[in-house]
Simulated assay, not measured.
Amino acid sequence: MTQAKSSALRKVNPELDTPTDLSEEGVSKISTAMNTILADTFALYLKTKNFHWHVSGRHFRDYHLLLDEQSEQIFGTTDEIAERVRKIGGTTLRSIGQIAKLQTLEDNDESFVPPREMLRELMNDNKKVAAAMRKAHDICDKYEDVATASLIENFIDATERRVWFLFEASRQEGDNEA
């Protein structure tokens, strides 16, 4: 993200300027990282719901329920991420357009995606989100933001659980690949 985008996220209306003991630079860097994760979380939520709505085949019921459960879990993190940004004095996402500008995950608008490919794509997207969370954790450590780092740790664990379930659900007999 460019410095201009980072600064734009930190410009806070005086009415919304939440007091914090974190440095201005720390708030800016952490908010930027968390807003990117938030944008990817919304993108991952919608892709997971898309695949939930459009899955077909002999494992329909299992995949349909798995993807519904995962999409609820993913959506459940959005408010916590956004509110954490506000708690430290940053601003957060305001529109779908802003999500589109910040997201790093690719959308999938295909008319049909085979079920195993759906699961593998979601697995890889979740792995990317976990990696971004680890980088955000490093930023939090640098600026001594223990609370955001702690929140991220819980989200990493949940994301890794989704990766594990998607990996196992997408395996075929004789598969040993990751």
Score class of each variant (00 low, 15 high):
142 K>Y: 12
156 I>S: 06
148 T>Q: 10
136 A>M: 09
13 N>W: 02
171 R>S: 07
74 I>N: 04
52 H>K: 05
164 W>D: 10
112 F>M: 04
123 M>N: 06
140 C>R: 11
74 I>G: 03
36 T>L: 07
77 T>Y: 03
94 R>T: 12
44 L>G: 01
143 Y>Q: 09
129 V>I: 12
113 V>P: 02
171 R>D: 06
26 G>T: 14
97 G>F: 09
25 E>V: 13
45 Y>V: 11
159 T>V: 06
31 S>I: 02
33 A>T: 05
85 V>Q: 09
83 E>R: 00
51 F>M: 04
62 D>M: 13
34 M>N: 09
52 H>I: 00
81 I>A: 03
160 E>M: 01
156 I>Y: 07
62 D>F: 08
174 G>W: 11
48 T>Q: 07
112 F>C: 01
97 G>C: 06
159 T>P: 04
34 M>E: 02
54 H>M: 05
50 N>C: 12
31 S>Q: 09
99 I>S: 01
88 I>Q: 04
83 E>F: 02
53 W>V: 03
10 R>D: 03
114 P>L: 00
134 R>I: 05
101 K>H: 12
91 T>K: 12
102 L>G: 05
144 E>A: 14
128 K>M: 08
130 A>D: 07
24 E>V: 10
24 E>F: 10
171 R>I: 02
1 M>H: 11
43 A>R: 12
104 T>M: 11
153 E>T: 13
11 K>F: 11
59 H>V: 01
114 P>M: 00
9 L>K: 05
146 V>S: 08
148 T>G: 10
128 K>I: 04
6 S>K: 15
59 H>I: 03
128 K>E: 14
1 M>C: 10
87 K>C: 11
136 A>P: 00
153 E>V: 10
169 A>E: 14
23 S>G: 09
76 G>S: 09
136 A>Y: 01
63 Y>I: 15
126 N>V: 01
125 D>Q: 14
109 D>R: 09
26 G>M: 04
18 T>V: 14
67 L>W: 07
81 I>V: 15
36 T>C: 05
154 N>Q: 11
30 I>R: 09
1 M>I: 08
108 N>C: 10
40 D>E: 03
50 N>K: 08
67 L>K: 01
41 T>S: 08
131 A>S: 13
162 R>C: 02
161 R>F: 07
37 I>P: 03
146 V>T: 13
90 G>S: 02
